[in-house]
Design a protein around this nucleic acid. Structure first.
Length: 380
DNA sequence: TAGGCCATCTGGTCCT
DNA sequence: AGGACCAGATGGCCTA
């Protein structure tokens, strides 16, 4: 696991990323071009690619590409200009070659197919490299956004990063769980909340969620469920049959987890006693046509004032803040209108206060302590 | 060694 | 024309 962490960390370093590329044969080198307008008629795809990407060209283009990439990265306009000039030079060369060719070859009827001159080839490859660089940047931006998402969902860990797909699933569950809290106005119990978070997650991620909440992952084992109180077993059954599960949703289940109660439930009767009521159980069973993969409400933008059932209703702000919505700044955008049912059910516990709303950036450090606050709530 | 995850390249499509 | 977005393909790295 440590090795995996190290690998991920190294992957995140740009230097490593490009170093790695140097040692790797690009996938495109082995790819054959099918019917490509840029491909010369007289050449087969394989020979064309071989010729196009001779070692010399590769070397030249690699230098250009690195320069452009660095320019794009550093924002150095001079480097970009230099490459643009290089492309202009290619244009000049192309025109010269075209003129030469007209003198020697008879003109052909029909749509004029552009010859794949060396200059055109160069331009094509440069265009491709620019597109590749843009695509890389785009994907890096996407990854950055995903990293931001990792930080605002529960269980953020630098040492054990959630995979992309698990991050999205956990985020979806988290949004849904918070939305349900607002919609119902009920305070959830720990187990139901964790269950909601873990829906459809892989076993390792489920364990991670449990670990972040300082819950013993062993309590997720099947035999543990038999020791549940009766009402919890019933709740587990309802969760197992929950329509949001990947089984019933027609989505691939393993290895992304199953929804049977065996690995969802764990109970700490000493902590919650018989007063523990599965919060989301009622929510889930009450939903007439729940569609977990359907459109969900966006993250609500309120400073929520939630408390769990084992807490006194007048929980102080420090504790309740653990379940503060993450994007208060968006409250004004969303507005209460589209979420009227949610707000209507949550008026008793949610305190909508624009003054207390923080910017997203200002919220960042709160996200990081959220897990700790969750722990404080659950393990008082 | 198979499978998961990831980064990257690529060509197609749509939009400005 | 060029950029953004997307999905498929490929190969590397890692773990069970």
């Amino acid at each position: 696991m440590r090795a995996e962490q190290t690998r991920r960390e190294l992957h995140a370093l740009p230097g490593r990323r490009y170093k790695q590329r140097e040692n790797r044969q690009p996938a495109t080198m082995t790819k054959s071009y099918s019917e490509d307008s840029m491909m010369p008629e007289s050449q087969s795809a394989s020979t064309w690619t071989d010729e196009c990407l001779s070692s010399q060209d590769e070397h030249e283009l690699e230098k250009k590409g690195e320069g452009r990439e660095a320019a794009a990265k550093d924002g150095d306009p001079e480097d970009v200009d230099a490459l643009n000039r290089l492309e202009e030079d290619d244009d000049d060369e192309e025109e010269d070659e075209d003129e030469d060719g007209d003198d020697q070859k008879p003109k052909r009827r029909g749509p004029k197919k552009k010859k794949m001159t060396k200059a055109r080839l160069q331009r094509f490859k440069i265009r491709r490299m620019k597109a590749n660089a843009r695509e890389r940047n785009r994907m890096h931006g996407l990854n950055d956004a995903l990293e931001s998402l990792r930080k605002v969902v529960p269980c953020y860990s630098k040492t054990q990063k959630l995979s992309k797909i698990e991050t999205l699933r956990l985020a979806k569950n988290y949004i849904w769980a918070l939305s349900e809290i607002l919609r119902s106005g009920k305070s959830p119990d720990l187990m139901s909340f964790v269950q909601a978070l873990c829906k459809g997650l892989s076993q390792p991620t489920t364990n991670l969620v449990a670990g972040c909440l300082q819950l013993n992952p062993r309590t997720f084992l099947p035999e543990q469920s038999q020791e549940m109180p009766a009402h919890m077993q019933a709740a587990g059954a309802s969760f197992a049959a929950h329509p949001y599960s990947y089984q019933t949703a027609g989505l691939p289940s393993p290895p992304y987890g199953t929804m049977d109660s065996s690995h969802i439930f764990h109970v700490k009767p000493h902590a919650y006693g018989s007063a523990l009521e599965p919060f989301f159980d009622s929510v889930l069973t009450d939903c007439a046509s729940p569609s977990f993969d359907g459109p969900l409400s966006p993250p609500l933008s309120v400073n929520g004032n939630f408390s769990f059932k084992h807490e006194p209703p007048t929980a102080d702000f420090e504790k309740s803040y653990a379940f503060t919505m993450h994007y208060p700044a968006a409250a004004g955008l969303a507005g209460p209108q589209p979420h009227a049912p949610l707000y209507a059910g949550a008026t008793q516990r949610c305190d909508l206060s624009v003054e207390n709303m923080l910017s997203y950036e200002g919220h960042a450090h709160h996200e990081r302590v959220m897990s700790a606050q969750l722990n404080a709530i659950f393990h008082d």
